[in-house]
Design a binder for these strands. Structure first.
Lengths: 215, 215
DNA sequence: GGACTAACCTAGTCTCCGTTAGGTTTACCG
DNA sequence: CGGTAAACCTAACGGAGACTAGGTTAGTCC
């Protein structure tokens, strides 16, 4: 009853690129907040200022959208390490610097990293994409941080499995602390960095110098 | 066309208790494999040898079923620590013993622990249940392992936040290694224990003795 | 200022899945 | 044996949400 077509919402018409960026931002939020399954195209569209079909003008499916975001944000995180870890300073300082930059990213991109870490979706395709991108990051970053940090020794001699396990410890600690920090945002960043360094560097250094735990 | 009612599948009729146990086992598997959302009542029922409505004779909803399993399996894991950690031996040995028992559980219950660790479902109720039960475990176990292991020092002096962070490192490392181990089952358990001990004990001990990382 | 492209919309379809209503059969107990 | 409780079934509902068909309007370019 009343006005037939459109109550005149005066939609702003954007370029495809600009709208696409809005959709990606909104989708990152929604995926981070609700996880893959509960993230609805409807909500993503609403937060982008459009209706659902518009999303499909830019992405062929929900999975496709998700996958693109995964790759985008993993690349950003990888970039952090590539930019802040290499250098001439002693490894201890470079590691601390990289970890600080990493926590800074976590602080400034409250959605991007949560979308990557908070979920292991049951959707086979999504899980596969997740894994693939994780393996790629590991392959790219492992040679960067191993060797110099002594992380190759934590899990036995430097065989492939040992390296992967050391990487896993690294990853788990940083990811775990980041998730905890999100729930405890009053903690200053430098304390997070100290904690990570105490767990990862001080301990590893001792192991690195040859000490092992023996049954 | 043909036989009207039932091609005679000869269903075995069980007691409510026995059927309930079958359903819980099957549900644990399915939740572990697919995560909460993709776990369908249909599949759970099929693996329990019944049809979907029977599940509702035992559990009021999918959420209810999931919640019961969460509590059951968290209790089992907590029991491990309560049984294997306390004692008269030096803390180093007791910690190693408990970690070994923990990995043994992981090895022998390939579904239960994955159901707990592999997921952070978007479903608000489920997430809330997850969190509640995690907080309860932490409250129960933290006083058990803190203090003796020196874990209170990794994250600064023994304030509440520091304790929680140390706990988080513990949890993250054990959980991360368990998930990695699941994908690399050829690694013997004692090597997993050594790795965990090298990461958690050797390093912590040094921090415990007063050493800290300083910017 | 007319025409054309493409950004955007309305209105639906279709499938999956949790859940329920209500009947049927098995086991057990007297 | 019968009667009864409860274990189990068939059949269907209802809602949610991914995705699509096809039209409408806003910018843009001669």
């Amino acid at each position: 009853m009343g006005t037939k077509k459109r109550a005149g919402p005066r939609r702003r018409r954007l370029t495809a690129e600009a709208r696409r960026e809005l959709i990606e931002r909104a989708a990152t939020e929604v995926f981070a907040e609700h996880g893959y399954h509960r993230a609805s195209i409807d909500e993503i569209a609403r937060r982008s200022g459009v209706t659902p079909p518009v999303v499909y003008d830019h992405f062929s499916s929900k999975k496709d959208l998700h996958k693109r975001l995964l790759e985008r944000h993993y690349a950003e995180l990888g970039e952090i390490w590539r930019r802040y870890f290499p250098g001439e300073d002693p490894p201890e300082q470079r590691l601390a610097g990289a970890i600080d930059a990493w926590f800074a990213y976590v602080q400034n991109h409250p959605y991007a990293w949560r979308m990557l870490f908070r979920e292991t979706s049951g959707e086979p395709d999504v899980q596969a994409a997740h894994r693939e991108v994780q393996v790629r990051s590991r392959a790219a970053l492992l040679p960067l941080v191993a060797g110099e940090t002594g992380s190759e020794n934590i899990a036995g001699s430097g065989d492939a499995a040992g390296l992967e396990m050391a990487w896993e410890v690294f990853r788990a600690v940083l990811q775990g602390l980041a998730l905890w920090w999100y729930e405890n945002q009053h903690i200053p960043r430098d304390r997070m960095v100290s904690t990570a360094m105490n767990a990862l560097w001080v301990g590893f250094e001792r192991v690195r110098s040859g000490e092992r735990w023996e049954a």
